[in-house]
Amino acid sequence: MTDSPPALAVKRLSHSYGSRKALDDVSFNVERGCFAALLGLNGAGKSTLFSLVTGLYAARGGATSGGAARNIGGATSGGAARNIGGATSGGAARNIGGATSGGAARNIGGATSGGAARNIGGAVEIFGFDIANDPGQALRRLGVVFQARTLDLELSVMQNLLYHAALHGIGPVEGRRLAEAALARAGLADRAGDKARDLSGGQMRRVEIARALLHGPRLLLLDEPTVGLDIKARADILAHVRDLVRREGLAVLWTTHLIDEIEPCDQVVVLHRGRALANGVAAEIVAARGAAGIGEAFERLTAAEEG
């Protein structure tokens, strides 16, 4: 271990539901203080990946040795490369081209250990803590916003936040202080006493983000957080999260199927039918495909996969 581990390391993750393969050898990193977008259509495997990263299902395979170690250098590209260390940065830079060329991405890991037959395997590490082996430490460093609304509608905003604080071993006095600070940051300081039911969709999302950050994690996971919101609320939530990344150095993995939520400098992982087709800075992925924009690049990538 050279310097500090990335906020999130997904290593050669595979998962199947029976015979249906939901994830096939997916690897990528989210570095500290970075906004990364996981882009994919519905059914691409985003929700499965999310469940594995949050430990709802176990990512357990053990077969991450050797190949995986090299994989950190190989599969993470773009902005990620700079943290890995001088020795691999050259290779990683070349890898951006390699990884984006359609089916090649899948082979990065496969070639190193030949474990293609594995159905469920790989590992997820949060700040170096394995979610399967050390879920307590990993989950303490993780904030999660689920796609479904998870506020207790009958309870007040403050009660919802205090419940979350208790789930992280934070007592009511400290919890109230943290909750007030979190709500102020979300611009909802005056809504603490209101029932969650009385909030708008966008406000609920803001409260959920505030709640996810209450215990001070440095990595925030959001599963399609703008689904069901109107255009203004969508832009508002996205700006809020980007602001958190910029100002507080939070690492964010933002799951979406909406291409217009991605900016050229974002790290993007393109997930399609359970495979990571590309992983790198959005602008570089676009350039590598000779596309005019991320939308066109996405279409070319997925078309190449199908053709």
Partner: peptide
């Protein structure tokens, strides 16, 4: 781009029994 320090912001200590009681 990033302003965060590399120091782990959260302690690695296990939860105390008081924290279990809070939960």
């Amino acid at each position: 781009m990033t302003t965060s320090s590399n120091a782990d912001p959260l302690s690695a200590r296990p939860f105390t029994s008081a924290q279990y009681a809070i939960c």
